[in-house]
Amino acid sequence: MGAPGLAFDGILGAALLWTAWQAIHAAGLFRAVVSFMVFGLLMALAWVRLEAPDIALAEAAIGAGITGALLLSALGRLDWEAGRATDECLRGRDRAFWVPTGLLLLAGLGGAAWLLPAPGLGEPVAAELGRSGVENPVTAVLLNFRAWDTLLEIAILLLGVVALWSLGPTPWPSSPELVSPALPMLGRVLFPAFVLVSAYLLWRGSHAPGGAFPAGAVMGAGGVLMLMAGARPWLSGDVHGPWRWALALGMVAMLGVAFAVMTGGHGFFEYPVELAGRLILLLELAAGLSIALLLFALYLGGEPPADWETRRPA
């Protein structure tokens, strides 16, 4: 690794600790949220240092980008003045408990983790990679070896949207005075770039870092930017017309493939080896599109109306 690498890691670690502390304890919620977003971006660097470029992409787009946008939008909906007046974090409370507990945890968990032999599954994954249909081992794990996890994960995104919409109508478009005059143009210029980047990531995913999740996240972030730039979301219509199927597309496609391969005498999710590559590409396309739309729908923070002008409920 060498001394420069170690120094970089040390500075990065210190910065991560500081931003994490600030994200929780900074005076004022706005500062806390911004610290959290910086924390997310720095984490992306840490993932790169730990040889996890896939995670770095996802963290930058989702952890810092989408989560940050969600946090800021929630902050905008809170009573800002009241929030500042009663800003409190009982930092000094129970210090007699937290300092020894923290040290104990640090020693205990750190020691336990240090002892871990970490045998890992790198070898079995490499051994079966040839039969998985893709060259990128992470994609192979996500969409073949552990595809059931991925199905449930997309189901959770959809469930999150359903849960948020069940809580109430969307506040958008909420505060137009926040939008800078340059943003609409910027948004329109940037959106095609977001689409291009997503398409590239999706295509790359089968053989190198990338794939449906980063691609979907980048596209979703582009959509969020468009919304901030004052664009009216297309998500509207009675019962949102076909949009709800588009949101459910990823989950339905995965369920469909999982059951469809059973007609050929295979098990649940058991792709025929010769078709595996194409099936995974199909699923990635469906998952990527619906992840983009789902992240965007999460950002709406509530049920979109049937008509954005009259705000008639769908």
Partner: peptide, 16 residues
Amino acid sequence: EVLDPVPHAMVLTGIV
């Protein structure tokens, strides 16, 4: 010993 992709996939799932 060999870079293990399984935790990477787990964390990607976890982030979403």
